[in-house]
Design a binder for these strands. Structure first.
Lengths: 196, 196
DNA sequence: TCCTCCAACTGAACGTAGTTCAATTTAACG
DNA sequence: CGTTAAATTGAACTACGTTCAGTTGGAGGA
């Protein structure tokens, strides 16, 4: 019966991720507590540390889920988009914004997780980021066929970063915020202008 | 002699801000400790709380300094800039980036300070933000004379947010980072394209 | 100059975190 | 079913921000 332990561990692992995912969604990353997790999961406090190195490790697992959902949301909206490259970029930008708005706490957790000095993001993080980039890269390469590969990559990154910045400052700051209609419009304006 | 106390309080206040400013610059916001501050300032732990409501209050004072320095840095580079509006925008964008790169920890502290749920940023924060926006608003209004006032404001905000996003993801993520040359180029490309 | 009183200052103590580890429980195997 | 090693537990440890009862020291009057 080599496995009873592994099965239980695996179940607890999934359970902990599910519960942390819920709590982050409801209360935000800053309100996640190891003791709450243990209570909700019906396990000992120390059990968390049998499975994860530390809370950061657990949060990374939640962030992986969030990243997958984000990718899926963007892909779903993209599927219904017109086939003009520029419209696809607009749809993607707005899909990114809508996901961030509707999953604020989850989305923030992607970027709020403090990575200690000089530590690089985990590999899957870069991969998921790359997937998002590749969505942009396609339409952009059609719009800008004269750009070299390196410049195209820079441009792709710049476009993503720009939309990210608009969403971040638009949603996040209590700086009087920007109404949803306006944010959608800002994103569309930016992308149309940048892709022209 | 109505004043000996006030003088000491004021001196300690300035001293604490100076020390917190240094520590944030050297070790980052996340490594700021009340006990370290007290030790460095040669005061009691509780003394900090006679002067500031809490550490957040002190950090806000440091951030106010940082914001002033940021504004001054942008203004200084702007003073040497060509008079073409588009070049001024490029210079400002790159000045923002250079400030962020050279004062990474200070710059991050501006945005990393956790504001508890629904709390709005302090007034001076919005004012300084407004000052940065007004730098952009001028040249942009020359470049886009046909835009309405509201759209111009949206565009101004979008432009700032875009540069902010590029700097944030370019500097911050350990995502293989973007070389300085490339970031300068990305910012210039974006601004030229967006202002066209 | 000295005394008195009250505001200001002090730092030990408190509450709340994440994390650890000695003691206990439990699963795997002969 | 007994033995043993690994897994699990939760009280304890450490490290924070913050508080507050006790003490100190300054300002005004005698």
């Amino acid at each position: 019966m080599a496995g009873k332990v592994e099965i239980r561990r695996k179940a607890l692992r999934e359970n902990l991720i599910k519960i942390a995912d819920q709590r982050i969604g409801e209360d935000g990353l800053a309100n996640l507590r190891a003791r709450d997790l243990a209570k909700d999961a019906g396990c000992a406090l120390g059990a968390i540390y049998n499975i994860f190195d530390d809370l950061t490790d657990l949060i990374l697992a939640v962030n992986a889920l969030t990243f997958k959902r984000l990718g899926a949301a963007v892909a779903a909206d993209l599927a219904d988009a017109p086939e003009q490259p520029i419209e696809q970029l607009v749809v993607m930008g707005q899909a990114y914004y809508h996901f961030a708005a509707e999953n604020h706490n989850h989305w923030r957790a992607l970027f709020d997780l403090p990575r200690s000095e000089g530590e690089t993001a985990p590999e899957w993080y870069l991969e998921e980021m790359g997937r998002l980039f590749s969505y942009i890269h396609g339409p952009l390469s059609v719009l800008r066929p004269n750009l070299g590969e390196k410049d195209l990559h820079l441009f792709t990154r710049a476009l993503f970063s720009s939309v990210h910045g608009i969403v971040l400052l638009g949603i996040d700051q209590a700086s009087a915020g920007v109404p949803e209609k306006d944010l959608d419009r800002m994103i569309a304006l930016l992308i149309r202008q940048i892709s022209k």
